[in-house]
Nucleic acid binder design. Structure first.
Lengths: 341, 341
DNA sequence: ATGAAAGCGCTAACAT
DNA sequence: ATGTTAGCGCTTTCAT
């Protein structure tokens, strides 16, 4: 082991004391154990001189505490998840914990395996952004007493603390706004069907249509993944089969991108031919050819909330009473929404 | 420890064998040690039934191998760094290793501390994206024999394997293109001065100007951080003090964003009033009001290369002969570059 | 005021 | 074909 050539034993020998004394002195318990100032100093000096770095591994084994938090996401390179990772990392750091990062690459199979690995490493808590199509393994996790928080794609039937955007309210506001602009045929380019964010958003759309006395149609909901490709294809399909569509609500930035490409190909312009609005704000959203209206998820707050709830669980050893935490989203109206052509 | 109530001891007892036999059977060494099929089966069953999960901590202590890789970045939420994290995570996963993620929040002080913590955890290798303004601690790391790879903001005088974009070539091409379009007064909105990427990019600009018989002027280089704010302020300053500037080369997406805001405020349009080109491509770059010309860094390849070089070091125990690996960047010409007004 | 010894859970060298 | 034992590096009782 490159790092750990020098152990407590070496320090103790160098200072002419026993390992126990060295351990106590270095742990700042000199007073408590009435170790003489001189002894303490010589121990510290020896440690410094030898470049002693205590082994976290040994410490973990002895104390039965790994000092590790697990963060499991479907794709760290996705800005949403990397923001979550950042917040959890910051919170962990502030408490002297470290973060084990795992990336399931949007595959539930990997998620299951990685989850087991993280538990093997005795993580003291978990923040999981599930892939979202299957939650059996998470139910098991819920039955264990290991502190865990789900973020974003939670499950209605998994009894784990969950932090997610108030997707329903966000989608409601988007749809209401489109209706106010005169739109009646609104296409939804959705993400992965069955996931909590997706279904909540659809519910929000349905509510808004109903409240306006309009009817919701499944025919207007297209797409199957939170990806550029899905956005592109579902947009083309929708334009072909429902030519009177006048507004598009895309469920992610990637999907919006695909839709933009499709619209460009068809020579349609925003907002003159079609209005466009998407979930997920973006630094460049305001500088687009058609400044894009968006629903801005408060990723930082989501991550922070998840981290806090996890820390609370770790400290108290109990799950917080409230299970589902909905973080408000902010609707950002830009000129990509226009009146019905 | 929630996870680890059940240890090898329990499994062994349940199967009526010794811990060593249980260990061997579970490690798949039944054949090698000629453990009877029956015994093996009963051990495996006991393990399953009890939900045995081996302790990585104990294993690490015993084997002196943590199975851990450290990834240290200035900001995981920055797409560049999260892409690196993703590649390293994937490579680690493929080899049964796990990744410890640390975020220095763009502060060298944190970087030093986190680096020590990672070493305390006996990481078997490190991928570091340094903050970049100070490298003393990295020199120390280079003196140790712990495998490590630097990414992006390397240091000329730190003898560690470094993977970074060919910033110089990228900047050269940008500048040459601007010159070809007739521009003579080209402003550079730089990032953090003194960092390798920044200085290499400036060198690239200087080379291109020189090769075109033009002179490079420090007066045209503004800004002090890779941030939106720095881009905004330096852009305004440049416009005020060098009113005849006709092209802007921003050193990051964030800086470009600040510049766009400044230009918008001044009522200047791209490319009619000024041409604009930036380092770092972006999914939305082509859909901007002025489709943005960019230098696309191959982040995936950078991350993968870093991971591979690290794995090579870990396996061979030696540093690769070549120290600096420059990954080519791709210049993406869009309409934000026009002729000199 | 300090040391000796046990033990965290695992693996492997050394017995049978 | 399987058991016994030592030991990884640390913390913490229990003895002086």
């Amino acid at each position: 082991m490159a790092a750990g050539a020098v152990t407590l034993r070496h320090v103790a020998d160098a200072a002419g004391v026993s390992v126990s004394t060295a351990s106590r002195a270095l742990a700042g318990k000199a007073r408590q154990y009435r170790i003489s100032q001189q002894t303490e100093r010589s121990i510290r000096q020896a440690a410094d001189r030898l470049g002693f770095r205590p082994s976290h591994v040994a410490r973990s084994l002895r104390s039965q505490k790994s000092g590790l938090l697990g963060v499991l996401v479907p794709d760290v390179a996705n800005p949403f998840f990397s923001a979550v990772a950042r917040e959890v990392t910051a919170a962990a750091d502030a408490r002297g914990l470290s973060v084990l990062l795992a990336d399931s690459r949007e595959t539930t199979g990997n998620e299951v395996t990685l989850l087991e690995q993280l538990q093997s490493r005795q993580v003291e808590g978990l923040v999981i952004c599930p892939v979202g199509d299957e939650g059996e393994h998470l139910k098991q996790l819920a039955d264990s007493n290991i502190p865990a928080v789900l973020v974003d794609r939670g499950f209605a039937d998994v009894r784990l603390t969950t932090v997610t955007t108030d997707h329903r309210a966000g989608a409601y506001e988007v749809t209401r706004t489109l209706i106010e602009h005169g739109h009646r045929t609104i296409g939804c380019l959705q993400g992965r069907p069955g996931t909590l964010p997706n279904e909540e958003r659809i519910a929000g759309c349905r509510d808004a249509l109903r409240d306006a006395g309009l009817t919701f149609s499944r025919r207007l909901v297209r797409g199957d993944r939170f990806s550029e490709e899905s956005g592109y294809e579902s947009c083309l399909g929708l334009l072909d089969e429902v030519p009177d569509v006048t507004a598009l609500f895309t469920f992610s930035n990637q999907i919006a991108l695909g839709a933009l490409r499709a619209l460009q190909e068809r020579g349609l312009s925003v907002p003159d031919d079609l209005s466009l609005v998407t979930f997920d704000d973006h630094p460049f959203a305001g500088f687009l050819a058609a400044p894009l209206s968006t629903v801005r998820q408060d990723v930082a707050r989501i991550g922070r909330t998840a981290a806090e709830l996890l820390m609370e669980q770790i400290q108290t050893g109990r799950r917080p009473r409230r299970r589902l935490h909905r973080i408000p989203a902010e609707f950002v109206l830009r000129t990509s929404i226009g009146p019905r052509p």
